[in-house]
Structures are given as structure tokens and as C-alpha cells.
Design a protein around this nucleic acid. Sequence first.
DNA 1: CTGTTAGCGCTTTCAT
DNA 2: ATGAAAGCGCTAACAG
Lengths: 350, 350
Amino acid sequence: MATDKEGARGRRRHRGNNRVTIEDVAKEAGAAPITVSRALNTPEKVSARLRERIDRAVEALGYVPNLIAGGLASAGTRVIPVVVPSLSILTFIEVIHGIQQTLEAAGYQVLLGSTDFDLDREAALIDSVLGYSPSGVILTGLRHRERAAHRLKAWGRPVVEIMELGEPCIDMNVGIDNAGAGACMAQHLLDRGYRRIAFLGTGMGMARDYRARERYEGHREVLEAAGVESGLLFQHDEPSSYELGRQLFLEALEARPDLEAMHFANDNLAAGAILEANRRGIRVPQDIAIGGYLGLSLGEHLTPRLTTVTVPRFGMGVEAARLLLTRLEGRSLASSRVDIGYELSVREST
Amino acid sequence: MATDKEGARGRRRHRGNNRVTIEDVAKEAGAAPITVSRALNTPEKVSARLRERIDRAVEALGYVPNLIAGGLASAGTRVIPVVVPSLSILTFIEVIHGIQQTLEAAGYQVLLGSTDFDLDREAALIDSVLGYSPSGVILTGLRHRERAAHRLKAWGRPVVEIMELGEPCIDMNVGIDNAGAGACMAQHLLDRGYRRIAFLGTGMGMARDYRARERYEGHREVLEAAGVESGLLFQHDEPSSYELGRQLFLEALEARPDLEAMHFANDNLAAGAILEANRRGIRVPQDIAIGGYLGLSLGEHLTPRLTTVTVPRFGMGVEAARLLLTRLEGRSLASSRVDIGYELSVREST
DNA sequence: CTGTTAGCGCTTTCAT
DNA sequence: ATGAAAGCGCTAACAG
């Protein structure tokens, strides 16, 4: 079959990538390229007979569409950039996992970007990924550089902001109420009868994890309303880790030996604290109660098991992807803002 | 300045995406598009004066290159697909993190794909991502469908296979010697004087995590050579978790109360076991010794601290990305196979 | 060092 | 239901 009808490779100004193109398929099937395109993208617009011939040709030649060319000619590239602050934080990983699984099942690919909590890097990254003509974008948080937000708005394609909830958002928003989650744990600690309660966190400056700061604010308001000392705060600025939880635990214990309960900004820190308590024979919750935030599975395997505010991280990713897909498929949206919620998981550490 | 010299929007057959194009910049700077392209990609080939005018125009118009068009016209898209079995396994996440950080710093984006340990899905995914004209590809493992391996070889761009080490590889290979790692821990347990030693793992069938199986093989050989019972194996088929570690621990203990040491396929399982031992007051290592594999930071915070074989997961990602970049930048490679190594971290659990 | 021209592979518009 | 022609935005090749 492979007689050289048109000379070896025809004209080859650019380095012919020797990949099978839609034109090869068209020739093989005896149809026009556009018809092949239709058979692949909108099969219902091509007669059954032709479609079958085309399918066979595709199979025979092992044709794989060049999505770059498609993306250039039409609109999106079926790529969804997901921009998160960090890949070393398990939370984001789990959200990404939910996003990725949902999008990949729908034939979209996830492009990964991380900003290291730097809004300027985020803006640059957004510029850069928009260069891929993505079908949509998923971002972390509601705070962005003016330029980035503006560009995304002008862009006109679906954008989902995840992790937190609030106004205004660029387009769509899936997240949880951080202040509420902080308040929820604080209230639980009060309900348990604890009065000397500290909040322990890290990276809570404006520039970094301001969501942890919001949880702290929620915590404070509840304590204030209850008329107990509300300013007990211990914080560092490195990334969360078991080690840091250990350190915060020891520091707080030393600074305030009268402390009754510790409210950690996340389960990694809280777990580090419980593990250190185990090691030193400090009894939890009798000597000191410990609460967390996230709902990591590790918490259920500690002794005592960790009381925490469980957040459906994977589910948040799935939901964000769903919103995006709904819009991409042109279906209408019940609401462009989804509160994914949280749940207080009371266990033995408080 | 913005008089409509050529009619509102000129001809607009396709829906003009109204984005600023290289042509707009060229006009603004009074140069040809190709010159703008050169000023951006190979500045040294453009005179300083023109370059400056162009830079100013770029700035003024807020031009962001359309990488899709660039990718179509030239070669790669500065996208590197990274294909891993799962995003719920921390190991892969850490490797991806290393890759992502290194590549992003060099101006490449990571496209994420996961196969759920299914080689057919992997092959389909490879087909699909090749449609993005990526600059290179990073894959997990050395075992692939013939079709996929063949396509990647024919493709001719850099491909790195990570996690394990061996022959043959498609192009480049960065990983560790799994059998060696398994043997290393087994030898350590023997050296410590343990004789009744079990291996506990999960998903070790051919189709799934065969790297764990290789570690088991290494373990067995060492025990066999030492003349002790070498077939003690407990395994499940679900994903690793603390919970599964707990279950394996209890099962093994019940089935063989005379067991002296447990060699877990990874630290997640081993940690689950130690946490359960803590809960039940079983003493480690006096009642039962426990060894792991990976070097998760959690291991150092347990009581007793976990003896494990530490693998530089982040470093493996960095190294894989470096190999890729070296090739992309046309520099020559010292070796296309890098053994990233492992280290026995002896702590108190054995 | 700068520009002209053609074309990457696909899909849009417009016609039949 | 099918096709012809044009062009998405950029860069490789080939001049000057």
C-alpha cells in the first residue's frame, strides 16, 4: 500500500514530525480531513458507513490527534492548570487528587503549578499557563494580584477558586468556611470544660497561609465571647511538620504550664504533639487536651485518637472539577459557590 | 494611537480570541513578527536597540506568548507529562514534587497523569499526552505495554523511567535497586539476631506494585542464604495505609505468635503496626521487631523510632528532571542510568 | 542582524 | 451529510 505517490515525504520545510496526521487518515478512508475531524468529535454528524471506514483507518494507522493543533485551531486544549501554593502539603495533594481523577475521567489533563505562597509567582504562573489555551483554570484561595484576577476575568473561561469561601470570586468558588472551622473546635474545647486554651500554628502571616489565620480568628472570637483568655497564640513560620508540632507543643508547655488545651492549626502539628506526649509520658487529654484540623487518617491511629475538624479534601477537588466540567459542557449551574463543609470528629484527645 | 487602520478587527473568520499576539507587538515596535520571536527566544540574535523597543512593546501591551501556537510551529511545548501509578501514594507525590520544582524553575510545566497501576491505561495515557507535543516524558517503572514503549522510542525525545533500575530502558533511567533494598533490611534483621522473620506487604501481584515484590525477593534470598525460614509472607491487596498495617500486624501476630521480626513493604504499614503495638502495650522491639522502607518523617516521631531503608524520593524527582533538562538543553550526559541509592536508617524499632 | 514566506495539523466558516 | 478554503499564532527555512 505504501507506494510513494507524492515523492518521499513531499515538501518538508519544517521537520515533518512523521506522525500520522488527520490527512493520512482521511486519505486511507477516502474522505476529507474535516470529515475525519467530525467523525472523531461529533460522530452523530457523520453517516454510519463513513464513520466506520474512518474508525477503521484510525485504528489501522494508529492515529492519535495532535491536541496542540486542535487547540490552536479551536478553543481549549483540554488542559486544566491547577495552581496551588505547595506540593509538600498533603491537603493540596489530596485536593489535586480529587481534581485529577475527575478531570482525567472526562478526558482533561491537569497541568500542575505551585506558587510557594507567593502571589507574584502566582500571577506569573497564571500568565504562563494561559499561554497553553487551557479549557479552564483552578486556583487556590480568593486573594490574587489585581493583574491576575483581571486577566482571568477578561479571559472568559471557567475559573474555580478553591479552599476558602467568600466574596468576591473571579468566577466559581468551592471551599470551606475557615473561621467557622476554627470557631467550631474552640467551641468544642469550651464545651469540654477547658478554659486555658492556646492556638498553635505556623506560616500564618498575611503572605502565607492566611487561611490558618482565619481559623485562628474564628477561634478567638468564640473564646472572647465566652469571656476567657483568647490571645494565647504560639506560632512559627516554617512549613508544618510533625517536628514543628513537637516543638510548638514543648514551647507552649514550658511557657504556660497551666495550659489545659491546645488547638493546633492542622493535624500534622497536632500529631507531632501527641507523639511527643506519648514519648514523654504526658497524658492526653488528662494533662493537656489536643485538637487538630483536617481529618488526616493518622489521627485515628494515634493513642489517644485525635479530635479534629474533618474536611473532605478529596471531595473538594472532585466538586471543583465537577463545577468546571458542568460549565465546560455548557450545562447551567445551580450555584457558582459551593460550601463543602466540615465536621467535628470528637475522639479521645480532648 | 488606536485608529482603525484596517477596519474593526480586520477579517475575523475564526472567533478572534482578542488576545494580544506577536503581530500586535511587532506593529507596536515597528518590527517583523519573527524578530519579536527572536527577541524573546534568542535575544542575542537581535540588536540591543531593537530588542529594547520590542521589550517595551511587550510590556506595554501585556503580551503573553501563545505556547500552543509556538508548540505547533516548532517542536516542544515545554510541557513534561509525568505518569505515575497513583496520586494517593506519598512516595509518588514526593517524587513529583522534586520533578515539578526542578522543571518549573527551568520554565517547563508538569502535566500530571495517573494510571492506577493499569498498564493499559498507561499506554492510553501515553498516547494521549503525546498529543500535546511534550518536550519530554517521565514515566514510572520499566514495564510498559509493547506499543507504548515502542511509540516512545520512535518518538525520539527524552524519556526518563523512574523508581526502579534495570535493563532495558526506553531512554534514561533513574531509580533504586529494590531487591537490594529488601535484602538490606533482611540482612539487618539477621544481624540483629532475629530468625523468625516475616515480610508483610500489599498489592504485590504482577499487575500492581511489583517493586514491593522485588524487595520481597531480595529479602527472601538473604534469609534463604542464611538458612532460616524464608517464606513467611503476609499480604493483602488494598492500597497501603496505617489501617492496613495494623491489620497485617495483628494477623501475623495471631498466625505466628512465635514471630520475632516483621519486615514491612513500606513505612505506612510499619507505622500502622507500631501505633497498634503502642495501643496494645506490645513492646517493640522486645516482643516484636519492626522494620520499614521509605524513610517517612513519621517514622522518627514514633516510639520507638522506626528502623527503615531511607530512599531519597524528592531527590529522585530532582535527578530525573535534571537528566531530562540536560538532554533538552542539548548537553551530553555522563550516564543515562542513575542509581539514586538508599540508606539503612537504624533506629530503635529493631 | 532583519525580513519574507510557507506551513505546523487541526477546525472554523461557508458552500453544496 | 460532506467538502473546500482559510487561518488559529507562531517559528523554520531561506534570503538579503
